[in-house]
Design a protein around this nucleic acid. Structure first.
Lengths: 207, 207, 207, 207
DNA sequence: AATGAATGAGTGTTCATTCAT
DNA sequence: AATGAATGAACACTCATTCAT
């Protein structure tokens, strides 16, 4: 009875619980929607008690906020990495960005689903903060589009709107993709890169 | 006290009430989501009593089902009309279809929003029936795409998936369009027609 | 199965339910305090369901407010009647007022207890409104005191404060009175009238 | 890490914590009522953790009990001292007692408020014990009254009840007194001494 | 077709208290 | 003595739905 968990392990436990709750919330919100999922359901999925949830997140809204924030952070990280490692021309940068984006959607389909479907239930400063973060993430893609239009690599006359259209397309993948489907992860990414470049009217030389 | 409304007038009243309820439901579901909106809220918006709702629709689920069904029917009607009036080649048929689709999104933004966001809360045969109807509607667009690919008018190698990508793009318009925004209805339609044809890699001669 | 309750009876039923709920709330708040009593407890005492409570009162706070308002209204009515029927001099007016006050405390001990102990849990405009009403009621007594001091009937040099002291005394009766106690209702009233006049230093001629 | 606080200092710390908790509880119970205040709130006010409260007091009830016990002890001490230092006749003893009582109410208004309002939430032997202590305290005042009535100094025919009426008056001061009000501490005491003697119908010679 | 009253299950959240360390 | 995590019961309130009329 003299055994004590070292402090580091305790911290790990706490963090593990937090992660379990966030995952549970993601699953519950994803399957039943934010309003359709109950805190009781989240607790059950996380393997803890209802009231213990409130030791980690002060409210259901905050829980949703944190779920969305983490999803966006991961997506942003992936996009940054992809763009940094890509070449200098807009086409190859866009191709890598789209690949990374699709990769994220496939790896974190539920997170993407929840991200697009449940943001609307966030209110107040929590919402504003998240919207700002998401805008920054999306700007990685739209920025490339604008760069390419400016440089003449993309010939579309609608720089701003075309970027949004591409993002819509990519986000929507989460709503129909099945891991056991016809298309592999790589094919999916490749296809969407092609859609994007075509939509932007990049000349064949640049694709 | 012997006065009775003639049957025709009663029917008219009933139909007016039904429409009021459906509109109220559309508004409530659109603003608060299916699970976030209560039947009380719908009743308040419709200007009737909570319990009277059940004289028109047997449950909240049926109410949602009917809202979605009507939205899809109107969209299908518009698409049909547009395609019938278009030329014979896939490009002009697709352009008209996209125009009609965007027109519907603009005219019935809330309906489109609800249609994409809240279908998931429908269950059972109600759901199956609706999904089938929506598939038929979307097939109008994807059919054109496949026709064009088959005839060589569209050069994309991904006939099926490209159609889906285009639909995603169009549906997403509902989530950001503002009537007082930068783009007119016509410009919006035109732009999206161009996106679609570019994405499908239609040669310039066909655009 | 053709029997229908006449509209008047329905109204009576509704009113009876309202009264039952108010009585239940009075009992629960009186025995367990506002915060100690639950709406479930109130519902149980009223013989109805928890949720049905909310068809009559929009919140626990409103329920408390209404309980207090009714108690004050009844007290005010009794005081008015007593004062109107009393003579013209301050002494006899005060005596009748005190008698009526004590009578109310004895008849509605619980209401008086709740009135003094639970007002503090009322908040917002509900509270302000009630405080104003209570002030008007207490002014009936303090008014007589000031009248008597002005006319020289009462010789106390502390007109305003003495009135408050008397009211404190009377209110406190609710906290110890027992119907099966040593003193009859009449004796209790008589005693307190005497205390009040003595405290105000009314000369013996006026008592 | 070998340093240890000397036992005396630990004891002092412990006592300081205990006092902080009792004060916090007094404040919380006073402002929100016993049932309205949470142990979390008490902990926050005391500047310690929720669970640490239970190292000092085994339950919320015990905490309330201790708060009330201390308040009563202080009041009793003050009353004793005042009476001991007063003259021999009932009038001057009562006057001093009233002065001390009012002084306590002014100095420890919150304690007095809590004492009268929250005793009711005490149960079991805890309650009995406290009630007995309070009775002893109040007997200091009522004893003087009875002594004075017996000696003829007070002419009221209601020895027992008059004492209670006076105590009611004095207790109630806590519910309206404001430090920045019209009356000074001394004036307040003087006034109430006068009320008490008048109520007891002490002849002018004795006041 | 229309209503207000009624209900039981469920909501998010807080409670006093205990546990492990 | 001190903490943060944990819990089960309870809280006020709302839900979709039904009933009686």
């Amino acid at each position: 009875m003299n055994d004590r968990l070292p402090a580091a392990l305790i911290a790990q436990t706490a963090r593990a619980n937090e992660a379990a709750i966030l995952n549970a919330a993601l699953g519950a919100f994803g399957e039943q929607g934010f309003n359709g999922a109950s805190m009781r359901e989240v607790a059950k999925r996380a393997g803890t008690s209802l009231s213990n949830l409130y030791n980690y997140f002060p409210s259901k809204d905050h829980l949703l906020g944190e779920v969305l924030r983490r999803a966006n952070a991961e997506l942003a990280t992936r996009l940054h990495r992809a763009v940094v490692e890509a070449g200098d021309d807009a086409s190859s940068r866009l191709r890598e960005a789209v690949r990374a984006y699709v990769g994220f959607v496939v790896d974190h389909q539920l997170a993407m689903l929840v991200s697009t479907a449940e943001v609307r239930y966030l209110r107040g400063p929590e919402r504003d903060r998240l919207v700002a973060e998401r805008d920054r993430t999306q700007a990685i893609v739209t920025g490339i589009v604008e760069q390419g239009v400016a440089s003449g690599e993309f010939r579309t006359p609608h720089a701003t709107d075309a970027g949004r259209a591409i993002l819509s397309m990519l986000n929507a993948v989460a709503s129909w993709y099945r891991a056991d489907g016809r298309l592999s992860r790589g094919q999916l990414a490749e296809q969407h890169a092609r859609y994007a470049l075509a939509l932007l009217e990049a000349p064949l030389a640049h694709r």
